[in-house]
Design a protein around this nucleic acid. Structure first.
Length: 306
DNA sequence: CTCGATCCCTGGACGC
DNA sequence: TGCGTCCAGGGATCGA
């Protein structure tokens, strides 16, 4: 469940150890989560890691060009998505491999950068040039960089449920289930509310709640609910601050009402039924199926993406 | 455009 | 102790 704060924590920890290090060799284990394993093996050795950045939930390791690239040199990077259980950490070269170690990059300082991931929900890809830029363009705004205006436009322009919008990486990059629920609780917005139907004050409240929570979570080095640890193997502390996520049946910190759990956008969503009022519109409260609710938009072949 | 369902995958919790 | 079952969930994909 590494989301923005966890990935930011890992990126910062990794920076100290791997920036400026040259990759000597790559050893692969299971590769079904890697876009193009042969390319990883072929392209990475010989390159130096220039920087480690967070991009949404991705770690972005920017690399130097190959020495013989000449004027064909272009931007290149290793993208790493930690999925649910992925971890990228430096280890001393001699240390025995942990279970589920699938990628080992030997570095020029005697360390190894190892990727472990029991469930392999993660993703790894080497990308360069236009392919890299194109991949990065697929994602929406960084919630910490977006201004209120942009945030408002991205939320109010959509008819989807607010929870689905927060989770949609094309709308905002980096928010996952935990921080979506936490920010909706803080802003007192029910997860099934439609983005387009939020009042302006509500959108602004959500914007501030989300930014505040993400920033605070970064300071506390993320949430460790399963077995998340940072680049140094340390767990985060933000799970102690959770107000909604994982608290089904427990008392709301504001009003003592029991926190409830419903499925929204296919994910468990924790909320306070008193602080976060359910929407009135029939379609968002799931039940309404047949009868007067069914409106078919016939003959509307809207030209998308104009 | 938006939805839900399904799949991927393994470890941990739980019931018997 | 051990086995079976269910669940967790980010993202891709597909059909409605």
């Amino acid at each position: 469940m590494p989301e923005l704060p966890e990935v930011e924590t890992v990126a910062r920890g990794l920076q100290r150890y791997v920036v400026g290090r040259r990759i000597i060799s790559i050893t692969l284990g299971k590769t079904d989560f890697i876009d193009n394993p042969a390319e990883i093996e072929h392209e990475l050795p010989g390159r130096t890691i220039r920087s480690v950045e967070r991009y949404g939930k991705f770690l972005l390791l920017r690399l130097t060009p190959k020495e013989d690239a000449g004027d064909r040199a272009c931007e290149s990077a290793l993208l790493v998505h930690l999925g649910m259980t992925g971890m990228l950490r430096p280890h001393p070269a001699g240390q025995p491999h942990a279970k589920h170690t699938h990628v080992v990059a030997s570095l020029d300082d005697g360390r190894e950068l190892r990727y472990t991931d029991p469930r392999r929900f993660g993703r790894m890809a080497y990308l360069e040039g236009e392919a890299l830029r194109e991949e990065l363009r697929r994602f929406g705004a960084d919630p910490l960089e977006a201004g209120l205006e942009e945030f408002r436009a991205r939320i109010r322009g959509k008819r989807a449920r607010i929870k689905a919008l927060l989770l949609d990486q094309k709308v905002l990059r980096g928010v996952g289930n935990i921080y979506a629920d936490e920010s909706l609780w803080k802003a007192k917005i029910h997860p099934k509310r439609l983005g387009a139907r939020l009042r302006l004050e509500e959108v602004e409240g959500l914007y501030r709640a989300l930014q505040g929570i993400l920033q605070r979570a970064i300071v506390m080095r993320g949430s460790s609910i399963a077995d998340f640890v940072d680049a140094e193997g340390q767990p985060g502390e933000y799970q102690r601050q959770h107000r909604a996520y994982g608290r089904e049946g427990k008392a709301c910190f504001r009003c003592k009402t029991r926190i409830r759990r419903v499925i929204v956008a296919g994910r468990s969503s924790y909320f306070c039924p008193r602080c976060q009022r359910a929407p009135r519109d029939g379609k968002s409260e799931s039940r309404a199926k047949q009868g007067f609710g069914a409106r078919h938009q016939k003959g509307r072949r809207a030209s998308n993406a104009g």
